[in-house]
Design a protein around this nucleic acid. Sequence first.
DNA 1: CAGAATCCATTCGGATACTG
DNA 2: CAGTATCCGAATGGATTCTG
Lengths: 121, 121
Amino acid sequence: MTERPDVSADSLNSQNAEIACYCPLGGVMDPLSRRYAMQVICVTGALGPARYGEIEETFGGVSSSTLSTRLDELVEAGYLSREQYAEIPPRVEYDLTEKGDELREKLDPLLEWAEKQETLS
Amino acid sequence: MTERPDVSADSLNSQNAEIACYCPLGGVMDPLSRRYAMQVICVTGALGPARYGEIEETFGGVSSSTLSTRLDELVEAGYLSREQYAEIPPRVEYDLTEKGDELREKLDPLLEWAEKQETLS
DNA sequence: CAGAATCCATTCGGATACTG
DNA sequence: CAGTATCCGAATGGATTCTG
C-alpha cells in the first residue's frame, strides 16, 4: 500500500525509524485516550480562547461533569490554560498553551479525517 | 501563536473551515479514545503484518485480555484485518486495512510527537 | 454562567487461569 | 502461540442538584 518504513534492528536513527517500543508513550497518550479529549483540544484551538459553554455546545449532550473532568485533566496535563475573570456573570476562558497548540497541529488532520469518514458513512 | 483559522459563520467551505460541531465525530473517535488503540494502529503499520505476540511486546505488560479486546474492536471498526493460519503452532496476523492505513498516516505524526515529549520530560 | 458535588450504573482494564 | 473465560477493583461518564 503506501510505503511502509522498515523497522530493522539497526535503524536506530529516531529520525527515520519507527518507534520500536510503545511502552513509554502512555504518559502522553493516556490522557488523550479519553472521551472527548482530542476533540476538546481541537475545538479550543479553533475557537481561540473558548468559554466553557462554547466548548459544551460543540458536543451533543455531554454531561457537565464529564466535560469538566476532561478540561481539568487537560489543564493539568499542560495543554490548556484556564483564565477565570471575576465578573458578573462569571467568565472562564480556556486556551491552548504552547504545548497544547503543538498537539493540536498533530490532531487537526486526524479530526478532519474523522469528519470525512462520518460524512461518507 | 501559529495561525488560527477563523470559524466565522459563513466559512462553510469544509476545505478551509474548522469543524463547527464535534457531536458526530464520536463514531470515529470513540474507538480510538481507548487505551493503546492509537498505538496499536501505528505499531501494526510499522511492523507490516504483525503477529499478536509482536504487538504485545511493544507494550509493557498489557494484559492479554485488554489487548485482545482492543484488537477485536479495531478489526470490528475496519482498521485492522485478521488472518488466521491453520498451522501448528497457530499463527495470526493483523494488518492495516486501507482505511486503517489512512488512519495511521494521521496518527504517526502524533505518536512521534508524543515520543519526543516523553524523552524531554 | 461555569462549574462543583454527589450519586450511581456501566464500562474498562488488569490479573489469573485455562484452551486448541 | 494466540488467545478466551472469569473475576474483580477502579475508573468512566451521565443525571441531577446546588452554588458563587
